[in-house]
């Protein structure tokens, strides 16, 4: 298997605080990988660094598209990273609240379409076709994430679990081959978590790779093929769920004394 994401000694300093400390990580085609760690370990910072929202202070990030060559992506802007095929969701939901559910997804199609200002004004056949495709593709995604009944609803009016799913749908609309999910199950009830579980598995079955930050251990253990554990910005362990569960370092740092 060839890695599609390679992170090499990534570091991030906030003033005196070292939020990421020479972190290495690799993700292969079509696998679900989890990134876990106690609160404040630097997991979200890691996402922000590899997606271009923060500029890392050290290290490199490489992305290898399924049919492309390995390319370095640190220093790129967030929209360029997304265009390269890595999309993400946010820990604190960041939907476009005043737009409709469908329009939220349609925003995701932006980077895969190209109607210009003139096209928008004159509405030639090309623009009309593209616009129709955007609507159709977006609706298809809504069907997939189970929100087809709320097409015209304002995004803020959705229930919490549905908002989280809509965020995933919006990321899917950018056609990623690698999806980053930051605590997708946070605040969900057991039924919503189950639906999320199914959605993630169906995405993997389509061949998408997924990197998952999650505190829900049941979800992490059942979904992921490999787990990375970090604490205070450092990687303290990596391995299969079974290895992680029995790793004394992890138990000490993360699972506490419960196990």
């Amino acid at each position: 298997m060839k890695p599609i994401l390679t992170v090499d000694k990534l570091s991030m300093d906030f003033g005196g605080l070292r939020a990421l400390d020479r972190l290495d990580l690799e993700i292969n085609t079509g696998e679900i990988v989890a990134l876990i760690g106690p609160n404040g370990a630097g997991k979200s910072t890691f996402f922000n660094c590899i997606t271009g929202i923060y500029l890392p202070t050290g290290g490199d990030v490489y992305l290898t598209p399924p049919h492309g060559r390995k390319k370095i992506i640190n220093g790129l802007k967030p929209n360029q990273v997304t265009k390269k095929g890595m999309a993400r969701t946010f820990q604190n939901i960041r939907l476009f609240t005043e737009m409709t559910v469908l329009e939220n997804i349609m925003i995701g199609r932006h980077c895969r379409t190209k109607a210009s200002i003139l096209g928008a004004v004159f509405k030639g056949p090309g623009t009309i076709r593209e616009e129709k495709e955007i609507v159709e593709d977006s609706y298809r995604i809504l069907v997939k994430i189970g929100l087809a009944d709320s097409v015209n609803m304002k995004a803020t009016n959705l229930p919490y679990g549905a908002q989280r799913r809509l965020e995933i749908g919006r990321a899917l609309a950018t056609e990623p081959f690698l999806l980053l999910l930051d605590e997708p199950a946070a605040g969900m009830n057991p039924m919503e978590t189950k639906e999320l579980d199914d959605l993630i598995i169906s995405l993997r079955d389509e061949g998408m790779a997924i990197l998952l930050i999650e505190h829900d251990m049941k979800l992490v253990m059942s979904l992921s093929s490999r787990i990375y554990v970090m604490d205070y910005g450092k990687k303290i362990a990596q391995g299969t769920p079974v290895e992680i569960r029995n790793n004394p370092k992890v138990i000490k740092a993360y699972l506490g004394t419960e196990n």
Partner: peptide, 10 residues
């Protein structure tokens, strides 16, 4: 609506 999310969506 949201500058950061907007950029992250490409």
């Amino acid at each position: 609506e949201d500058e950061i999310a907007c950029q992250a969506m490409g």
